[in-house]
Amino acid sequence: MITLAGVCGGYGGLDILSAFELNVEPGTINCIIGPNGAGKSTVLKTVSGILRPRLGSIVVNGLDLVGKSPAEIVKFGVVQVPQRHGLFAGLTVRQNVMMGAYVARASKKRLDARYDELAGMFPIIGKRASHRAGGLSGGQRRMVEFARAMMLEPQVVLLDEPTLGLDPLSRGVIYESTRAMNEAGVTVLMVEQNVRFGLSLADTVTVMSAGRVVLTGTASEIERHPDLMGLFFGLAPETDQVAE
């Protein structure tokens, strides 16, 4: 479904990813975990086309996404929910969700029908449709972002730290919603700082550090792995440095 091979890239000449490899099976939830600065969010940005990798290939469902614009990638059915500030505060909830269909701009009737469908999955967009997005709480914003990502019935949704800054209750809602998206047939690739949350949700887990993969496995394998705790406190087996 999603295959990243030999991806190198970063910002301003500094490579954050070095020969990054990843393989995600269709219909699964895959979670990337790892300490700060490991390059987790950078992986998602290369997939969604925000950051063009210097080297390597990113193949989704047989199509190489490298060099494609973010708009083409969205159209192809790969949508990223950004880490924070994903909504447009000046637009209403409904307008925000509808913007998820910007690249298609289908008939109003079809979009309205889709909106009602999504309101079943994410009740907030039904209840608060005409409210300004700027006035929502963090958890509610996430739901609106999820709904927006689902507008065009994507194949893949990329979630960048969906629980960041959320209270435990909202995390629970995120948990359920991610499951629901997955059950609707969407392949999920997520990055999560909250390791236990990620592990509880994911089918497969990729642990990365300093721009490369250090462990892969099923969630339960990773959870029991003896190196996990150390990795998060910087006590990992020595990996190659990023710079100098």
């Binding site: 629980t163 435990p168 995390r171 700082q193 236990r196 949350f197």
Partner: peptide, 8 residues
């Protein structure tokens, strides 16, 4: 660092 177990 790892998230509260309670959240789950």
């Amino acid at each position: 660092y790892l998230g509260e177990p309670a959240a789950l």
